Simulated assay, not measured.
Amino acid sequence: MKNITSIERYFVSGAAGFIGFYLSKKLLDQGYTVIGLDNLNDYYDVKLKEARLEQLKPYENFTFTQGDISDKELMMSTFAEYKPNIVVNLAAQAGVRYSIENPDVYIESNIIGFYNILEACRHHPVDHLVYASSSSVYGANKKVPFEETDFVDNPVSLYAATKKSNELMAHTYSHLYKIPATGLRFFTVYGPMGRPDMAYFGFANKYFNGEPIKIFNNGDFENDLYRDFTYIDDIVEGIERLLSNPPKGEVEHKVFNIGNNNPEKLMVFIETLEKCLSNALHKEVAFEKIFEPIKPGDVPATYASTEQLQQAVGFQPKTSIEEGLQKFADWYVDYYRLID
């Protein structure tokens, strides 16, 4: 077992996940100690999670445990042994549509698992708990941009309901036990080594498998779906700025949107991805498209107001979809060895 010598000790659950990997790497590069945990489940390609982990393992200040946040005994023993100063809970069962097919895993990971994290923070006090919420809590809200003060009691998926529950649970624990806690409502995070269940990654997979892509907007280009696509580096910068800024006040709990504040039409995003893959492959890429009705649980638009985050830590995303998708396309072509 590696020695823990760094003053700041970060516990990152979901360390082999998309955001967890990038955040862990950034902290490790700065010399901090990271205690990573991930259950390496097969919701998507485990090889990709293992590839992320391989980049973290050489760091002397990285310790990894394969385990699940729903294992309360493991959570308690991990906190007792490593005594983290700051906890970042990014372990959760993700995906809106998957929650309709497999509700059990969402309750186990997102409700029971998060409860265990809160209990561990209660019994082994920490300087700050930062946890993943989601833009999905806004449900079918028509008013845009979404603001943290908006009414969010009408979730349209079980996934969204579990994330709203996390915010309520964190608020309660913060109130009762003085745990400084910050929830982050993420808006459509994308980039290299991203999640294969996300649309942009799935579109690339479909193209290279010779399959059409499905677009759930009824082919209505005037009223196309809007998404606040946020590049991974911007997300990590926003999280990093918040880590050392726990909320103050009577109840030390705060929720922030963390998004791009610049929504794009889904079709514009798809056309940009086609161009970026064309650049990476040095040949023209055009997806075959099938248009279908919007799916249950999906929302027509996600658009983050990031004013509160800007005021708190000066966060301002700066990566355009052209730049971000080109980095994804270059990585994708290289990772899957699509050019000799």
Rank of each mutant, 00 (worst) to 15 (best):
V255R: 05
A161G: 02
A140D: 12
E292W: 03
E284W: 00
I179L: 12
K47V: 05
Y32L: 02
D330I: 07
N41V: 03
S99I: 00
L184E: 12
N116K: 00
G36I: 02
A304K: 03
I179D: 05
K214W: 09
Y159K: 07
D104R: 03
V105Y: 05
L37E: 01
L118H: 03
I69M: 04
I111W: 04
N141H: 06
E147V: 01
D153W: 03
K178Q: 12
K57N: 02
K25E: 15
G139F: 05
G219A: 06
F146R: 02
N141L: 14
G202D: 13
K254I: 03
F64Q: 00
L277K: 11
T149D: 14
A92F: 00
N85Y: 07
S133I: 03
Y98S: 13
L309D: 04
G67I: 10
R52D: 14
R241H: 14
G14L: 11
N3R: 14
S99D: 04
N39L: 10
N166S: 10
L74I: 02
F21A: 11
P196I: 13
I86E: 13
S174F: 07
R97K: 14
S320Q: 00
V88H: 08
E240K: 14
A329R: 15
D224H: 07
T149E: 13
S134C: 00
N89C: 07
F216Y: 15
T302A: 10
S305W: 05
D298F: 13
R337H: 14
S320E: 08
G249R: 11
N141G: 11
F187L: 08
F18H: 09
C276H: 01
G17M: 00
T230C: 14
L225G: 01
E73L: 13
V144H: 11
I111L: 15
I7R: 15
V105S: 08
L158K: 00
R185Y: 09
S174Y: 12
I339H: 09
L325R: 05
K142F: 00
A51R: 08
E211R: 04
N217F: 01
G219E: 02
A280T: 03
G324L: 09
T182S: 10
Y98L: 13
P155K: 08
F62R: 03
K178V: 08
R97E: 01
Y303W: 12
E322Y: 10
N261M: 04
N166K: 07
T319G: 10
P263L: 04
K289N: 03
L23V: 12
G31K: 04
L40F: 15
Y332S: 11
S278D: 05
K275S: 01
K25N: 06
E288N: 12
A181L: 05
S109W: 01
S157G: 00
W331Y: 15
D233L: 04
Y115H: 08
Y131M: 06
K72M: 07
A304Q: 13
E252F: 01
M169F: 14
P84F: 09
I111Y: 08
G191H: 01
Y207R: 12
E50A: 11
V299W: 06
N260Q: 04
I100H: 11
V88L: 06
A94S: 09
S157C: 00
I7A: 13
R227G: 07
N41I: 06
A204S: 12
T78Q: 11
